[in-house]
């Protein structure tokens, strides 16, 4: 079949458009992030000046940057741990236990995933609102007096509010993912464990978890990448970094510097750090969680 005429031309015309667009809109801007981090440039003016690593040196002195760093790390750690535990537990229960309404729960839990971040932030702004919020409304009923906590307005609570929103948003997605890899495990393994009198909780830890370990490892990288990304979208739509940087995260600070503030080079330096950080963290976690692959 290699002899047919025009094979080369066919291959070229199939691959070229995708390759060209990919280079223009993904590869080139990515390279630009790295290159421009070495320049001092406002973005709109013509004068760019090469400053070497000065942007990075300034970053090290930037308290706001460290605040966004801290917030991001906190979000990644909390969201990953809580979501992972909940998603695995619920997936394990829904796949293994003979439960009613199994499918109903799966359908409901996935809903946050189809919602726009704009909708999510509007909903949670309404829930967490200090005066007319649903949450303070419930708390008032239980406390028997007017509760007026400013969930999004205080430095202490805003970041945890965001963590809860992000967990709420992510659980269903990961649960569905774990469910599909769990249901691929052959029933016979559980049957023989049943015969030997191994309880369901022990089965979960000795059969289910080791067999979907590869899948869990993959999702750990997803967690890192998507926490960084989702927290940015949430900040953009819900808090804009308020109060006073209390909810600022990596990419929202980058966007603020590069776009709103007009220090493009400085913003890109943040981008480089975020890039390196997320890749480095993924690599470390990947190495730490490496186990021999168990096949079934």
């Amino acid at each position: 079949m290699d002899k047919q005429k025009g094979r080369g031309r066919f291959v070229f015309f199939c691959v070229a458009p995708a390759t060209i667009l990919f280079f223009i809109f993904v590869v080139f801007p990515t390279i630009n992030v790295f290159r421009m981090s070495l320049y001092k440039w406002g973005g709109f003016s013509a004068n760019k000046s090469f400053v070497g690593l000065e942007n990075f040196k300034n970053l090290m002195k930037d308290a706001k940057f460290f605040q966004s760093f801290q917030n991001t790390v906190l979000i990644i750690a909390l969201v990953t741990m809580v979501t992972l535990i909940f998603a695995l537990t619920f997936a394990g229960i829904l796949v293994r236990a003979k439960m009613k309404f199994k499918n109903f729960f799966r359908v409901i839990f996935y809903i946050p995933n189809i919602l726009s971040m704009v909708v999510i932030s509007a909903v949670f702004s309404a829930i967490l609102d200090q005066r007319n919020g649903l949450l303070n409304g419930i708390l008032s009923i239980f406390a028997g007096k007017e509760v007026s906590i400013s969930w999004l307005g205080s430095q202490k609570t805003v970041i945890y509010s965001m963590v809860i929103v992000l967990i709420w948003q992510a659980i269903g997605y990961y649960m569905v993912m774990y469910m599909s890899s769990m249901s691929a495990i052959p029933e016979s393994l559980y049957e023989s464990a049943d015969l030997e009198g191994v309880g369901p909780i022990k089965q979960f830890f000795t059969i289910t978890l080791p067999l979907i370990w590869v899948n869990i490892r993959t999702t750990l990288s997803f967690f890192i990448i998507s926490s960084i990304n989702m927290s940015f979208l949430l900040v953009q739509a819900m808090t804009q970094g308020n109060p006073d940087g209390g909810s600022e995260v990596f990419l929202s600070y980058m966007y603020k510097q590069a776009y709103t503030n007009g220090s493009y080079g400085y913003g890109m330096a943040i981008g480089v750090i975020v890039f390196t950080f997320s890749f480095g963290l993924s690599a470390v976690i990947n190495a730490v969680t490496k186990r021999d692959v168990i096949e079934f």
Partner: peptide, 21 residues
């Protein structure tokens, strides 16, 4: 390999560079 690596590049990083381009 290029396309594979591209999966890990997040659109959020590229918003401002694409805008300026």
């Amino acid at each position: 390999v290029c396309f594979m690596a591209g999966i890990f590049v997040n659109l959020s990083y590229l918003v401002v560079p694409i805008f300026l381009m």
